[in-house]
Amino acid sequence: MSTTRYLLILPLMAVIAYLAIVALVYFSQRSLLYPGAGATPAAEHAAWGESVRVKTPDGEMLLGLHSQGDSDKPCVLLFFGNGDRVDNYAFLAQALAARGIGLLAISYRGYPGSTGSPSEQGLLTDGMAAFDWLSARCRSEIVVLGRSLGTGVAVNTAAERPVAGVILVSPYLSVLSVAQRHYPYLPAKLLLKDPFRSDLRIGKVRQPKLFLHGRLDDSIPLSSGQALYEIAPEPKQMLIYDGAGHNDIFTDSMVDDVIRFVEALAENRP
Rank of each mutant, 00 (worst) to 15 (best):
L210G: 06
A136T: 11
A98W: 00
I16H: 09
Y34I: 11
F27C: 02
R161F: 11
A90G: 12
Q29F: 00
R206C: 06
P74N: 06
P171D: 13
C138D: 02
G69S: 01
A97Q: 10
C138L: 12
D252A: 03
R161E: 08
V76I: 12
S71P: 05
D218S: 11
A97K: 01
L145D: 07
T157I: 01
D218G: 12
K236E: 08
L190A: 15
H213C: 11
I240C: 00
K55G: 07
E230R: 03
G214R: 09
G165V: 14
L92I: 13
R99S: 12
L62Y: 00
P57R: 13
G150A: 03
Q237V: 13
L33R: 02
V255Y: 09
H182V: 07
D87N: 13
A17L: 07
K204M: 14
G214V: 07
M13N: 12
Q68R: 00
K55T: 08
P41W: 08
F261H: 12
H66V: 02
G100M: 09
R181T: 12
I167V: 12
R53D: 14
G36K: 10
Y108L: 15
G64S: 04
A154I: 03
L191E: 04
H182I: 15
H182T: 14
A90L: 08
E160L: 07
S177P: 11
A136V: 15
D256G: 01
Q68M: 08
N88Q: 06
L176Y: 01
V153H: 12
S170P: 01
A188Y: 04
A232K: 13
V155Q: 15
I202P: 06
L134R: 05
V205D: 07
A14R: 02
K193E: 05
V153W: 10
L186G: 08
I220R: 01
A244K: 05
V22A: 03
V258M: 10
R197W: 08
A47P: 04
P270W: 02
K236G: 05
A164R: 00
S253R: 15
M13K: 07
V25F: 14
E263S: 02
T251F: 04
R139I: 06
S114L: 00
T56L: 07
F196A: 01
G116W: 08
L210F: 14
G245D: 04
D248I: 13
A20W: 06
Q68H: 05
G146F: 02
K236S: 07
P171F: 07
A232W: 14
P162L: 13
D126Y: 09
L77M: 15
V166F: 06
V262R: 12
